[in-house]
Nucleic acid binder design. Structure first.
Lengths: 135, 135, 135, 135
DNA sequence: GTGGTCTAGACCACA
DNA sequence: GTGGTCTAGACCACC
């Protein structure tokens, strides 16, 4: 449980971004609840065998996006979702990402129905986990 | 009709990548048919007011990905989708991209139902255009 | 029999080079004998639906390399192999091409034995044809 | 040891392609082992007295072909051959290249036996080095 | 330090 | 006319 982050160093996506993404997904899935404490920067860095600056950058971004709050001296904690702020810009960005995914799928020869089916499957993986936590 | 590509120079996504993405989407939507000719490198570059090398890089990537073929001296053309070949790796990458999109959406406070609805809407934009062509 | 040249317009190899290569192979296989007449430039160009200049360029290269001789007013003919001249440079170039092929093969996971076997198979295809002609 | 790449600037083969080819061969010969680091883009460029962009292009191609992975900020490294995936298309391309080599050799007046002998000699140069590493 | 992106502009090969 | 290659040099992101 202590270490659920997977880094692929040979990836076009920067490491700090991979960390941000995975923590965001963990929060979305409910694996990380409100107020829960993230691993210390140095500890996570040594476990992933990466530069502490890289972890720090990831945490900074998460804080700027409102997903976590860092209390100097005690650690970094998941924030209350109600406190997170989002722009209309975010919705546009999301729509663009969806378009991109659809174009990629269609180019793979996947039909519209299959795309929807695939999307539902992946979405259920998220929802299921959240239900599990709520029980 | 002549210019349907939109570049945002202040974006973290590189310009050449924006071009690749938009052309891929245009192909997926059927706006660009098989065998159709893309604008010449220098022409598109001057229209978008960017360097020809940047356009050339985008076209090169599209060629390596199998979406277009370039015939030196005559131009760059959309390939037949049947000739494109894809790996199982591509499917995994697609699933990961979907996960990423879902996490982003959920973190914006969007419910599962709304996500599905949004996804269907975007997908319809693609399918509609293709139906129009078939008629 | 009249038209045995196959052009793939969507190829990194220039068209004129494809023609040169295929004629060279036809000569090596014995499909084209000494003194035999090549199709006229304009005729071949119209059959392949390409620019006559492209065919002319191919014939020029074949002439410079000594494979054919053009007699103005009558046509282009295969030369006597004894009259062809080659440099030590050619041998080095050949060795480099072999190295390149081997590296490519090994990177595909093909063993040394398989490489030799494959090479022999392809070579036999050439020799067989020559035997067939001699009978 | 530091510099084993030879560039011939007067060659029809582009410089970036020469670099790609020689590194591929070095990998096939075992001169470059898994995980080994390639020279930095700027360093190799200054040693070969060419533009860094040209080296970068070569490295990019090697990455797209799966021979190396580049980790921005730390360097470019040889990948594990097991992770490289290839298509049946590659085998056809290889066979074509072999045909081309054979035709070129035969046109130089080299007999079939000599061709095989030559091929074996070049192949041994590769295998020997690999055996040496294994000891 | 590393590689990635982009520009400006030149030259060449191809059709 | 088309795209392909290369140079010179700048700026940025990553680690």
């Amino acid at each position: 449980m202590a270490l659920w982050i997977q880094i692929s160093s040979g990836s076009p996506e920067p490491i700090y971004s991979q960390i941000v993404e995975q923590i965001r997904q963990a929060i979305a899935k409910g694996e990380l609840g409100i107020g829960e404490k993230l691993p210390a920067v140095r500890k996570l860095a040594s476990e992933l065998i990466i530069n502490p600056n890289t972890v720090a950058k990831a945490y900074t971004i998460l804080e700027q996006t409102g997903f976590v709050i860092t209390k100097t001296g005690s650690g970094t904690f998941i924030t209350d979702p109600k406190l997170r702020h989002h722009d209309a810009i975010d919705m546009n960005a999301l729509a663009e990402r969806i378009d991109s995914v659809i174009a990629r799928g269609l180019s793979l020869g996947i039909s519209g129905e299959e795309m929807i089916s695939l999307f539902n499957n992946r979405l259920n993986a998220f929802v299921k986990n959240n239900d599990g936590d709520k029980k």
